[in-house]
Design a protein around this nucleic acid. Structure first.
Lengths: 74, 74
DNA sequence: ATGTGACTGTGAGTCCGTC
DNA sequence: TGACGGACTCACAGTCACA
């Protein structure tokens, strides 16, 4: 089975999709919320296992609800 | 402003509500998914900042979708 | 503009108790 | 049964140089 790496990838994909949907670069979004662009890059690729606090920051930067980052049914 | 501690509390509350709704003890749920009961206790209280992988495990143990843990509009 | 390797410090997560 | 403490390990947060 799977440990949650799938979910990490899915969340990352959601973040990327919503960011690109707003024509925002990783750099700009990262700067808005005071985080490192290289770290954001890895989260979007599902190569990291982010915490609730970090995802809350990202959701805030995107101007969306936290639960939208977990809405994989699109 | 807030760092995401609010979200931690809300997620913890959701977990607790869904667990109690299934008449499950912290110990049993923790054992089901191979996690520490003391950590589950603290997560439910919003005193810890859990990762996606851990939340995926908890959601799986509760038999619900990950996004349901972030559905605060109830 | 995005991705990767390597790195350090701190906190996520586990295990032992006690109340 | 659940809350809390201490001590511990390893992974995550966060940064930099470079591609």
């Amino acid at each position: 089975m799977n440990n949650g790496e799938d979910e990490c990838r899915k969340v990352g994909g959601r973040i990327r999709a919503m960011r690109e949907g707003q024509d925002l670069s990783q750099e700009k979004l990262a700067k808005m919320i005071g985080m490192d662009p290289t770290y954001l890059s890895r989260v979007e690729q599902g190569k990291r296992n982010p915490t609730v606090k970090l995802l809350a920051k990202i959701a805030h930067g995107l101007g969306v609800e936290l639960k939208e980052l977990f809405d994989f049914s699109l």
